[in-house]
Design a protein around this nucleic acid. Structure first.
Ligand SMILES: [Mn+2]
Ligand SMILES: [Mn+2]
Ligand SMILES: [Mn+2]
Ligand SMILES: [Mn+2]
Lengths: 249, 249
DNA sequence: TTATAAAGTTAGGATAGGCTAAAATTCTAC
DNA sequence: GTAGAATTTTAGCCTATCCTAACTTTATAA
């Protein structure tokens, strides 16, 4: 037993694989799981039996497997840890995608959840820091590639100007709702207007004033809108998004 | 077998424990190892037998265990990964010491070595970045504690002034040698003067131009001087330290 | 010097998770 | 509708790592 965790690393990987395969192809067959995890089909059967006994999946021999709601919750959590780590490895540490994925899929099982949350928080902060957090990261990538700190010295100037401009603009800046944002825009939550299932869902994830929201996709008519916030990927109906007051930088 | 690694997580922990106990008390007894790793004495015997078979330790029943040179090399590598991760968790992510240590001691076994090197590189860059890398990290810690981005906005100004001063000073700044530094001072390696065993030792660790050196201790007469560089702890004779030209911020 | 106490080892058992080979089931094509 | 192919499961084996209980060795103190 992976001390303190619900599941062992191995069973987390089976669950993660099942979730991802269902997401991609609709149903999860043992063969796909085996291929993805590079184990034999008989090992998969063993894993499925273990997950079924713990009630994370519905398993009938020879049939495709489905996730219980418990299993789906846990699977999403594994996937989230994976994504966050991969994000950090690629976007901050400039690790190439393949290694970042491999590393994330190992580390995801051993890193303590509170440290994952700190990591999310740190990456958010880097994105919004007026001191040029993102540029610091860019500077690091350049430094790492070339060994030169030149770029770092040079780009502080534009970074400052941007900051000053931002400052004077702040007063006249109008707040808006999440429903009005476009893909790739970032915003900070000011407050959540309406009370109800959505605001509770947000609160459960610790999303409130000050949280950074990252718009990922907006469907043709603005409904639904997919955002990333605190490392979670969220799909919101336009109606609900309109209840979230945000401020853009 | 922990795919791609010499040793399993469990055996790495035994090796790490042996190294740390020898460092602290001179000899490693099974009882100390058992206590440290929270396993029974009989499990320790099992671990020692496995390590002995792989030639990482010298083991004779009922006697204290010693590391072979292979074993010591590997143990140091585990300890280094542990330290780097702990450093990152505490100094960048503001994780409390206890959790940082626990997390580091789990993650150390699964994180790919190239990612560890990127992490070292990133932390060094944050420390030397003229854009205020360290202050960005401090800003994050404040943000994390209070949820406020105020501090971040306010301290950009002194950060800038420091940068400007730094810039004008740069021309007149005299480079010095590692031998002239005091404890807690940080410096960046400009070049290594003399060739020989020491410069080769440094080169083996990937230490060259641009590496950040952190002075930890200086003995009464300046000999030896203990520094941290790229996550390694190094003890240098004054004579050798004088051959390393560095620049201080 | 010898009887305890402490430390360490061995024996035996459990669980987890992988594998191969063989059997069972389901799918597919004629 | 049936035979062969593909898929999946079972059986049996292996290694790693932990444990408890019993035994052996070493240390210590009267
Ligand atoms: Mn994984
Ligand atoms: Mn994963
Ligand atoms: Mn460890
Ligand atoms: Mn450790």
């Amino acid at each position: 037993m992976n001390a303190g965790r619900e599941l062992s690393a191995s069973l987390e990987d089976y669950l993660e694989a099942i979730f991802c395969i269902i997401a991609a192809k609709g149903v999860a067959h043992a063969k796909d799981i085996a291929k993805r995890l590079r184990v034999t089909a008989s090992s998969v059967t063993g894993g499925l039996q273990a997950l079924a006994k713990k009630n994370y999946i519905r398993y009938t021999p020879y049939e495709a497997v489905t996730l219980t709601s418990e299993g789906e919750k846990l699977a999403k959590d594994v996937v989230r840890r994976h994504q966050i780590l991969k994000d950090f490895f690629t976007n901050v540490l400039a690790v190439d995608e393949k290694l970042a994925n491999e590393g994330a899929c190992k580390v995801e099982h051993s890193i303590p959840p509170p440290i994952v949350e700190k990591l999310v928080s740190f990456m958010e902060f880097v994105e919004i820091c007026p001191r040029g957090g993102q540029q610091l990261v860019d500077g690091f990538r350049h430094y790492h590639k070339t060994g030169s700190k030149e770029n770092c010295k040079r780009c502080i100037v534009p970074s400052l100007e941007k900051l000053k401009k931002g400052k004077s603009k702040t007063k006249g800046k109008a707040n808006m709702t999440l429903a009005g944002l476009k893909p790739k825009q970032k915003a900070v939550v000011i407050r959540i207007e309406r009370r109800g299932p959505i605001s509770r869902r947000l609160a459960d994830m610790g999303i409130g004033r000050g949280a950074l929201v990252d718009v990922e996709r907006v469907a043709p008519l603005g409904d639904p809108i997919v955002v990333k916030v605190k490392g979670y990927h969220l799909s919101l109906r336009k109606e609900d998004a309109a209840g979230i007051i945000v401020s853009i930088d």
